[in-house]
Simulated assay, not measured.
Amino acid sequence: MSDTPTKTLVPADDLRAFSAALLEKGGLSAEHARTTADVFVWAAQRGVDSHGTARVPAYLDLLAKGVANADPHLTVESTAPAAAVLDADRAPGPVALTAAADEAVRRARDTGIASVGVRRTVHTGAIGYYVSRIAEQGLVGIGFVAGMPNMGYTGVQGAAVATSPLAIAVPAREHAPLLLDMATATIALGKIRQAKASGTPLPEGAAATADGTPTTDPEQAVMPLPLGGAKGSGMSLAFELLTSVLVGAPIFASFHTGDRAHRQNALLIALDPAAFGDPTAFLAAVDDTLTTLKSLPPAEGAAGVFYPGERSAAKAAERGEKGIPVAPKVWRELTERAYMWGSMGRCHEA
């Protein structure tokens, strides 16, 4: 008989409503709470548990400490039809980037391609959500995020750049959209914490000590190393220029001169296939490309041939039917907050 704690299985709609209720109790408006919960549950449903409902307590803490603004005044500045800057006023990332994604789609409908920079937000969550939101409208979505330095840079001692992510979503006609969502780090910070808790050695070249020395010892590891060495660190630095510096809110330079206040910036881009040719033919060609890929012979031992986002889309469908498993520690944190505020959702044991 297993002593492993049982995960709690919660229907997606219930988990969304439960998370939104907690976030509203934490100070967000009902609309902003629903938006934020949507992003968390989207990630949890696709199996990205590190950015799922496990983030709710952390966001409640950000709101309680005033790091995130519970009542932000979002403003959009623009001097060109195809470009804008959204000042988030320290709104939670899901609130700011959802608004930016919708603004990018609206502008791209008129201009063919549009970009919206996001200035002064806090923790953006899974950026795959925002580019997927763009793809749902039949457009191609591209996103970059820059944040606080927490990753090594090739040739530098200690943390120098952020684990800045990149996401691209391309709509298809029959297939699930292609969704590439990746960080510039070899390993996530959460994976380092998990290895430390379990005492499991880390992969070679994945993490480093405080002075930047590579290590496989989770007790000594404090930061991830960049993906592909100089390639990953170079990408992170480029994303800082394309987001933070572009919108006049630099993080990298100010961090290394003493400003450690938490913040993030982003850039979302929407491309309308209709501006490049026949959008119907584009979707058909995307399907043909993905079908061709999947028809290639799999390598020995491979479970199959998959394109980015395919397996997470299948998991989302499965969890949409069966419910989303929530880890015991996360469920305990959520229910403790709920009992404190008198707000519980429906659930049953997996």
Results as ranks from 00 to 15, higher is better:
Thr4Asp: 07
Thr8Ile: 09
Leu22Phe: 07
Gly27Thr: 02
Ser29Asp: 10
His32Thr: 03
Thr36Gly: 12
Thr36Met: 07
Val41Cys: 04
Val48Phe: 14
Gly52Tyr: 02
Tyr59Gln: 09
Asn69His: 13
Ala80Gln: 14
Pro81Lys: 12
Leu86Asp: 12
Pro94Glu: 09
Ala100Leu: 06
Glu103Pro: 01
Arg107Gly: 06
Arg109Ser: 02
Asp110Thr: 10
Ile113Phe: 11
Ala114Asn: 01
Val122Leu: 15
His123Tyr: 13
Ala126Thr: 12
Ile127Lys: 07
Gly128Ser: 08
Gln137Asn: 08
Val145Arg: 06
Met151Ala: 03
Ala159Asp: 03
Ala160Arg: 11
Ala169Val: 00
Val170Gly: 04
Leu180Ile: 03
Ala183Gln: 06
Leu189Ile: 01
Ile192Glu: 07
Gln194Ala: 14
Ser198Cys: 09
Gly199Trp: 07
Thr200Leu: 06
Pro203Asn: 04
Gly205Ile: 00
Thr215Met: 09
Pro224Gly: 02
Pro226Ile: 05
Gly228Asp: 11
Gly229Lys: 08
Lys231Asn: 15
Val245Phe: 08
Leu246Val: 08
Gly248Asn: 10
Ile251Trp: 05
His256Phe: 08
Leu267Met: 15
Leu268Ser: 08
Ala270Gln: 01
Pro273Met: 01
Ala274Arg: 06
Ala275Phe: 11
Gly277Cys: 10
Thr280Gly: 15
Thr280Gln: 15
Phe282Val: 06
Val286Cys: 03
Leu290Pro: 13
Glu300Thr: 15
Gly301Gln: 03
Phe306Ile: 07
Lys315Glu: 15
Pro328Leu: 02
Arg332Ile: 12
Arg332Pro: 04
Arg337Tyr: 14
His348Asn: 10
